[in-house]
Computed example of a mutant assay.
Amino acid sequence: MKKNKYLILTILWMLFIFVMSQTPGNDSSKQSNFIVDIIIHILPITRDTLSFIVRKCAHMTEYAILTFLLYKTFVHKQNPLIKSFLFTVLYACSDEFHQLFIPGRAGQIRDVCIDSTGALIMILIIYFILKRKEKKIGS
């Protein structure tokens, strides 16, 4: 059952990403503007730049979480880090393709790269945690 827990969480997270991508462009901007309105008073940065940063950080975070969940799903398989990364990149590609059909949204290669960067950061975090655990066990 424990193995299935991560598979179920992974599927739910993929559905969450799909639903968020289903949101029309104007509504999506309103969601990120909530965060922008909080931060804009703290940082000396233009609203457009901050909005861009918030939206892209959200992309990276969504896909970092997906990568982690996939890793936990594949952990007992061969090459779970590679499989997790590749699956995440493929899902990012499919997500951007999906956005081509949503009003006010556009599928962009740049967003696939940003999503993949979030995935890569998570892969590196997992890798270094695993290496650190190996050192402690070997000591």
Rank of each mutant, 00 (worst) to 15 (best):
S94V: 12
M122V: 04
I40Q: 12
C93Y: 05
V89T: 02
D111N: 06
V54Y: 02
Q22I: 01
A58Q: 01
F97M: 13
D27T: 06
G104N: 04
E96D: 13
R105S: 09
G107L: 10
D111K: 05
P103V: 04
S116G: 09
E62R: 04
G104L: 08
H76Y: 13
T23P: 00
K3I: 06
I82M: 04
R132I: 11
I53V: 10
M60H: 05
A64D: 02
T67W: 00
Q99G: 08
Y91M: 08
C93E: 06
L7G: 08
I40T: 13
H98N: 11
H59I: 04
H76D: 14
C93N: 09
L86H: 00
A64C: 10
K135M: 06
L90H: 02
D111P: 01
I40V: 15
I102N: 02
Q31R: 06
K30I: 07
N33H: 12
V89L: 05
I45E: 11
F87P: 00
L12K: 12
L100E: 11
R105H: 06
D27W: 11
F34V: 12
I121D: 06
S116H: 05
A92R: 00
M20Q: 08
R110F: 14
T88F: 02
Q99A: 05
K72H: 06
Y63Q: 03
T67E: 00
D37A: 10
T10R: 04
F34P: 02
I82Y: 08
K136C: 02
Y127E: 13
V19K: 12
Y63R: 01
V36F: 05
K135W: 03
T88L: 07
F74H: 00
I17D: 01
L43R: 12
E62H: 06
K2Q: 15
T46Y: 15
Y91D: 01
Y127P: 04
S28G: 01
F101Y: 14
F74S: 00
I82N: 07
I65E: 06
L86E: 14
M122N: 05
V112W: 01
L7K: 15
I109S: 04
I11R: 07
M122W: 07
P44V: 09
G104R: 03
N79F: 14
C57V: 12
T67I: 05
Y71M: 01
L86V: 10
K2H: 12
H59T: 03
N33A: 09
P24I: 03
I121F: 13
V89R: 01
S116W: 03
A106E: 12
E134H: 04
I45Y: 14
C113A: 13
I126P: 01
W13D: 09
S94H: 05
S29G: 11
T46C: 09
K131E: 11
I102A: 03
F101R: 09
K3S: 08
L130V: 05
T61E: 13
T67C: 09
H59Q: 03
A64F: 02
Q99V: 05
F101N: 10
F18V: 15
T67L: 03
T117F: 14
I109T: 12
I129S: 07
R132K: 14
T88S: 10
Y63T: 06
E62D: 10
